[in-house]
């Protein structure tokens, strides 16, 4: 097929309307796109045009159920993200490979020095034997270096994974600290109700971004299948659902939340005991409640 033939397919492909049966044609198009900047640029504008058709659908009569937002923000905590196809990883891997080469060659140096002493002493009598021994030793050293390299690379992959995780945790901790220390952060104090008199909690949040952190203490353990759920209660409106959480064995809980825009002006925050998946309207007993501000 010619460039013109492929070009004619672009509009249909942008609409995902090429006949699916013809896989060969589709992969030929993909190959052409990979090598043809003109078609790629054309395809990009056609894909943008196709995506704008989203506005040809009528907006929904009602916004999505508010608990959907809370459900998504809870669910992402247990969904790992794809690794970034970052170049830094590849670069670091090369660096590590280089490091292992460096260390194995210095080891090789030491061994060679030792061998030279031995070889020197026996050279007159066992010259040829020593030379073949030296070659054998060299081969063994190389094999060891090879193995070591492979092992180091595996170790490196594990370490860089740990570093990635640690960096993410650090970023999160930093964000928490910033939130807690920000002068514009708002704080609500929640006290235990009669079902949990000793329980208490503090909710700190940024009214701009909705980023919030709830720290609770002395909450009774949630029975199996149950969890605590946070609520935002604005005057004259039904309570808006927040995320669910579990206290640890000592009754402590630390929960990150992103309060929806309508919840940021809530007058009262409360925590109830609910089914572990969370509910859209409170059904269980109130354990913690802020006093109306």
């Amino acid at each position: 097929m010619t460039h013109e033939d492929y070009k004619e397919m672009l509009a249909l492909d942008a609409l995902d309307a090429l006949d699916g049966g013809d896989a060969q044609q589709q992969s030929a198009l993909a190959a052409h796109l990979a090598g043809c900047a003109e078609c790629r640029a054309e395809m990009e504008t056609l894909r943008d045009a196709a995506a704008s058709l989203v506005y040809a659908a009528a907006p929904p009569r009602e916004a999505p159920a508010p608990e959907l937002r809370a459900r998504i923000l809870t669910a992402i905590k247990s969904h790992p993200q794809d690794a970034r196809p970052a170049t830094s990883n590849g670069g670091a891997a090369t660096a590590a490979a280089q490091t292992s080469n460096v260390s194995s060659s210095s080891e090789f140096e030491k061994r060679r020095e030792a061998r030279e002493v031995r070889v020197g002493r026996r050279l007159l009598v066992f010259g040829s034997l020593a030379a073949s021994l030296a070659i054998a030793a060299l081969l063994v050293t190389l094999a060891l270096a090879w193995q070591r390299n492979a092992r180091l690379q595996g170790e490196f992959a594990r370490l860089s994974e740990t570093v990635n995780r640690t960096q993410q945790e650090l970023a999160r901790t930093r964000a928490d600290r910033e939130l807690l220390a920000a002068p514009e952060a708002l704080t609500a104090t929640l006290s235990g109700t009669k079902v949990a008199e000793r329980a208490r909690a503090r909710l700190t949040f940024d009214a701009q971004t909705g980023r919030a952190m709830l720290m609770a203490a002395d909450l009774p353990p949630a029975p199996p299948g149950k969890a605590y759920q946070l609520w935002f209660i604005a005057e004259g409106k039904p309570p808006m659902p927040g995320s669910v959480f579990q206290p640890d064995a000592r009754g402590h809980a630390e929960m990150h939340e992103i309060i929806p825009p309508e919840g940021r002006t809530a007058a009262v925050f409360a925590v109830t005991l609910e089914p572990a998946a969370g509910v859209s309207a409170p059904t269980g007993e109130i354990y913690l409640k802020s006093s109306a501000s």
Binding site: P60, P64, L73, A175, I258, P261
Partner: peptide, 18 residues
Amino acid sequence: DESALAALYDRYNSILLG
């Protein structure tokens, strides 16, 4: 960044639901 996902949701949930 979870708050970025929340912001994207707040911006597009309705248009995507449509």
